[in-house]
Each structure stands twice: as structure tokens, then as C-alpha cells.
Nucleic acid binder design. Sequence first.
DNA 1: GTCTATAACTAGATAGAC
DNA 2: GTCTATCTAGTTATAGAC
Lengths: 190, 190
Amino acid sequence: MTAGTAAHDTRSRLLDAALKLFSKHGLEGTSMQMIADALGVTKAALYYHFKSKDEIIEAVALPALQEMEQILDAARTKRSRGAQIDHALSGFVDLIVRERTLIRLFNSDPGLRRLVNQTLQAPRDENLNTKMKTVFAGADPSLADAIAVHVMSAGLAMAGGAPEFAAIDDDTLRQHLLDLGRRLLGRPRR
Amino acid sequence: MTAGTAAHDTRSRLLDAALKLFSKHGLEGTSMQMIADALGVTKAALYYHFKSKDEIIEAVALPALQEMEQILDAARTKRSRGAQIDHALSGFVDLIVRERTLIRLFNSDPGLRRLVNQTLQAPRDENLNTKMKTVFAGADPSLADAIAVHVMSAGLAMAGGAPEFAAIDDDTLRQHLLDLGRRLLGRPRR
DNA sequence: GTCTATAACTAGATAGAC
DNA sequence: GTCTATCTAGTTATAGAC
């Protein structure tokens, strides 16, 4: 083991445990004590790795948010609207399947939804939700399209992260979510 | 005013305020102090009307849960599978549109999801989620159908209660949600 | 029906030993 | 890197005055 491995291990174990607890009890329903107990350390030990609970939440959530933003940016470079939607949808579904619990959490917890709308808003004039709506339904979408995108994004995320579907393998789940997403967005089946 | 009106008024005002705060901050993120402040009374006054925070949560949530159960029971009396789905879907969408914030809350808050799975489970052998899956996708549904039902139920509920769609009038919202629900369940448009 | 006051407890966070 | 001990402020809930 190289130097720093132990620290890294504890840090990732901490983030794993936090995510599990967040998804089970919600952000506010999870205390530092619960996270410490899950790791078998004391509360105070957590504060060596992160200086606040909010920092833990950010460390859990931010990477996936930034990844989703990159997917949407990449989608925008495609020429046709159809190709943009295809790229964004398959990237979104990949992310859901790989980070099932986390992506579900974004849609469920009120506190985390606020963070989504705030944290990634500074560098640009639009937040992640607006960007998703634009890529999936165009710059000035009809009401029907705007609602369809919302149902798609929330529905796929909630279903993909649902405990009852946890045993489904990645490829199967991905295919079903893709199919439902295409159906909702009115895209023909491939 | 008849006797008891003041008490009843305070009680419903309390439930209204609680629902708003629950949907904004989550169940655990909402304190008795916040509810009291929203009403302009003290914390202790709340305990005259309800003997615990859990009782407030139950009073907010239970009526809609029971109503949904009645809708599903009524749907089961229909002869054809198609008629069962149509009845359940339109009842579900009606409920979402009438109680936008609450139905969204059921799908979002981890604590309330637990209550949904527990409280209405005792009188029968199945909980509300199982019952929904059975009515919408049959007794032994394919994986594709089970996922479709989950996306439908979570997606419609989350979209119907989304703040960005709060200004949409009931009839318009109902029609769009119905259409998306039918699309997800593979039902032909009417 | 609502108040003040307070009990009993848990939250997030810090200081300093080891 | 984790510990014990402690702080402040907040939590749910109760007792009893009005």
C-alpha cells in the first residue's frame, strides 16, 4: 500500500456510507452520528476528512452533476436535433444505471434539488434543469414537450434507482429505460 | 360560526402549512418550530391539535393514500384489463392534479415512502405500491411492464407537482399527464 | 385554545490528547 | 487519523398558567 491509501480508503468508504444513508433517510434525516456509526468511527473523526456535513453532501453529489453537464454540452455539438436527443438520452441513462442510488436522490431530496439548482449555476446563465429541457425539447418548447421531458427525467431516474429493480443487471436496465425514454420523447425505436 | 369552527380552522391551516413546508424542506427538514412560525403560534400550541410530529405527517398523508386505494379497488371491479387501466390511470391523474404537492411528496421523501409502505399494509396482504403494479401491469407482469409502471407513476407524480408547472390550470395539466401515462403504458390515444 | 417555561435529548461542530 | 470531552444551538415534547 502506498502512502495516503488508508486516508483515501476511509474517505471513499465515508462517501459510500453517506450516499446509502442519504438515499434511505434523506439528507436532513441522516446525522453525522449515523455516518460515523456506519463506518465504526466517532463523529469527530469525520471532521478530519470533511469540515462540514454540507461538504460531504457536495462531495457525494457534484461529480455526477458535472458529468451530466458534460453530456449535455457534448450533445449540443451534434448537428441534428435527433442526434442531440439521442446522445443526451443515452448518456443520461448510462449515468442513471451506473449511479443508480445517487441519480434517484437528485430527484427525490428537496435539499439536494436546491443544491442542483444553485451550485452549477454560477459559471453560466442557466442551471442544469434548464439545460436539460433545452437539449431534450428545444429552445422554446411547447407545454406538452416540457412536461414530457420532466416526466422522462424524473421517471427514469426514480425507476432506475428503485430498490425493487436493484437486482437487474446494467445492460437490461439500460435498454428498458432507453426504450421508455424514447417513447416519452416521441422518438422512433431503433 | 358554530362551536368548534376555530379549532377546525386552525387544524386545517396547520395541515396546509405543514404540507407546504414538508414539500419544500422534506419531512426531517421541517421542525415543529417552522410549522408554528408559519401559523403565527407557538410550538406548544401545535401539541394541542396533534400529540406528535408523526401524527401531523399521518394526517397530511393518509387521506390521499386511502383515496388512491379506493380508486384501485374500484378499477379492479371493471371487466376488461383495458377498462381497469383506464379507470386507475384517470383516477391517479385526477388525484395528482388535485393534490399536486402531496402526491409529489409521496414519491420524493424517503420517510414518507416508508410510511406509505407500512401504514396501509396491515389490513391486507399487499401494500399500495404492489396494488398499483398489479392493476396497471397485471398479476405477473413482465420486467418491461413493471419498469414502465414505475416510470409512469413516479414521472407523472413528480411532474404534476413540479413548481415550474404550478401555474398550469387543472384541465390542461390533467390532459397532458393522461396522454403521457397512456403512452408509457402502451394504451392507444382516445 | 394558546401561552410561557422548561425538561430531556440530539444535532453539528471544535479543542486537544494520543 | 482517530479518539474523548465538550460546546452551542436546535430538536420533540410536557406541565401548568391564563
